[in-house]
Design a protein around this nucleic acid. Sequence first.
DNA 1: GGTCAACTGAACCCATGGTGCAGTAGGGTG
DNA 2: CACCCTACTGCACCATGGGTTCAGTTGACC
Lengths: 209, 209
Amino acid sequence: MAGRSDTKVLIMDIAEKAVLEKGFEATSIEEIVAGAEISRSGFFYHFNDKNALARALIERYIAAEDALFDEIFGRARDLNDDPLHAMLIGLKLLAERLDDLPAGHPGCVVAAAAYQDRLFDRGVRELNRQAILGWRARFRAMFEEIAAVYEPRAPIDLDALGDMVSGVVEGALVLQRVLGERQTVSQQILQFRTYVRLLFSAETAPRAA
Amino acid sequence: MAGRSDTKVLIMDIAEKAVLEKGFEATSIEEIVAGAEISRSGFFYHFNDKNALARALIERYIAAEDALFDEIFGRARDLNDDPLHAMLIGLKLLAERLDDLPAGHPGCVVAAAAYQDRLFDRGVRELNRQAILGWRARFRAMFEEIAAVYEPRAPIDLDALGDMVSGVVEGALVLQRVLGERQTVSQQILQFRTYVRLLFSAETAPRAA
DNA sequence: GGTCAACTGAACCCATGGTGCAGTAGGGTG
DNA sequence: CACCCTACTGCACCATGGGTTCAGTTGACC
């Protein structure tokens, strides 16, 4: 073959970095191909248009995020079999992980896409929707398990609680981006962690165990 | 004068609607001038470039948001002099207000701008920063007052708590935008409200009052 | 030696942001 | 009444950037 076999991945890496820094629209194909040292034609050989790039980027980002959640909350569950304590450990691990990321760190591709809606086709928007619904389901299940063991100290809406994980993270990413401070995301996650702790009052013993 | 005296405001109204629907980049000057029934030259007479439009839009949005907060939390304080209860009433009013907004409702201009960073100049970014810092200060002060009366049930970080109001709202706006559901924002605000209630345990009597 | 994947190069179209400038309608002021 | 100023219109023109078409090239593998 007359080229690297991983050009597509290289394009995506360069594009992702640029998109997270300055937004999708502001990232030109020109600068991507310059960075990847290929021609414009080469870019269009791999992606039919910019939309296809966006779709690939979002797909990959979502997969990575899912893998991160799997790893972190899986490890948390290994460390403590109690669902509430596993959640609290997981949130702490998540906060630490997001703190460790390099300066500026990745903003969330999902949110970036959300505010440039009409730029993308139905496919991209649907992907985005499925990702957020997936996270809702994931965390909802965890909170269900917790609620089965610990009596909540306030009436709870499991879907809203599940959404709150994504919501707090997305919101904090916006703040961190605008403020330029480094620990906004982890601080906000820890606030949510405190909420979970108070809601299920970890100090108390489980109700059935 | 050979034109309406409020053309600038008309341009901004049309632009704001379009920007909230599909993003800043996706909104062309062409469609704005078509909607306002003026010429392209007319647009550039009022705004030096698109950046100036963005700045004016963000300035106006922030002022409106501040006015909304003033009104809602002012009214809440009128209804109950206790700082905690005023906060809880205010959050409820805020949730209701955001629910009443027309279908799809305005996304947050601040967040929209945050993800299209390099598109804007330093001035716009600084405006954004000041808005969020302003909200932090506003809510921090309210939580300080609450903490002076109610013993928090967990160690608190007043700045993080203040930021959480903006953060939860911004994050929920992203979710609502992507999911297309109608009550995501109000639900998330009510979650935060529950957190505040649990954190300062409203059921208990104030510590000094 | 032929096929195929992975490109390059160049020409070209269109939309959009932006500039420059000359002209003009009409209200306000001297 | 003349004059100025504000708020525009119209037009010509430029650059950037997404996107298409297509003919040609290069190197790996069979």
